[in-house]
């Protein structure tokens, strides 16, 4: 997933939290950096992101502008907008531009993890993993 946040400390915290939950994260310090990463994706130099997290207010180019650019390019990757200025107008604007969800700062990092997990594919198990876990499965694979 890709993250753009201009606050160095928060950016590191977001990246660390999501990496700790098992995701591969690349970060940018502003919207221009995010656009550069997206260009790299379209050139095939970076893997296609399955989630993008962006701050609204950033130098060079804000998250909302990048979001609009993404949707204009018909990229339907889920986008999480984070903002310290989350009034109703901003929420509505983000929704119109195609944001998946808006998180108002300060938000708990677990909320972002919850959002990422809700959008990711659940890990499926095979029979041998169940056996190895040492617990008897309540029912087989036919439910």
């Amino acid at each position: 997933m890709l993250i753009a946040e201009d606050d160095d400390e928060l950016r590191r915290l977001l990246a660390d939290t999501l990496e700790q939950d098992g995701y591969t994260v690349r970060t940018a310090g502003d919207g221009r950096g995010m656009l550069a990463m997206l260009s790299a994706v379209s050139r095939g130099e970076l893997p296609r992101p399955w989630l993008i997290v962006m701050d609204v207010r950033m130098p060079a180019c804000g998250g909302m502008e990048v979001l609009s650019a993404l949707r204009l390019a018909e990229w339907d990757v889920p986008v999480v907008i984070i903002t310290a200025f989350g009034d109703m107008d901003l929420h509505r604007d983000a929704g119109r531009r195609g944001a998946t969800i808006v998180l108002d700062k300060p938000f708990e990092l677990d909320t972002l993890v919850c959002v990422a997990r809700a959008l990711a594919t659940a890990p499926m198990l095979e029979d041998d993993e169940i056996t190895n876990s040492g617990r008897k499965p309540p029912f087989g694979g036919d439910a």
Binding site: A94, T100, L103, D104, E108, D110, T111, C114
Partner: peptide, 12 residues
């Protein structure tokens, strides 16, 4: 800290 936060809005 493992709690959902009120100030979020999903559009889906």
């Amino acid at each position: 800290r493992r709690r959902a936060k009120p100030s979020i809005r999903a559009f889906a």
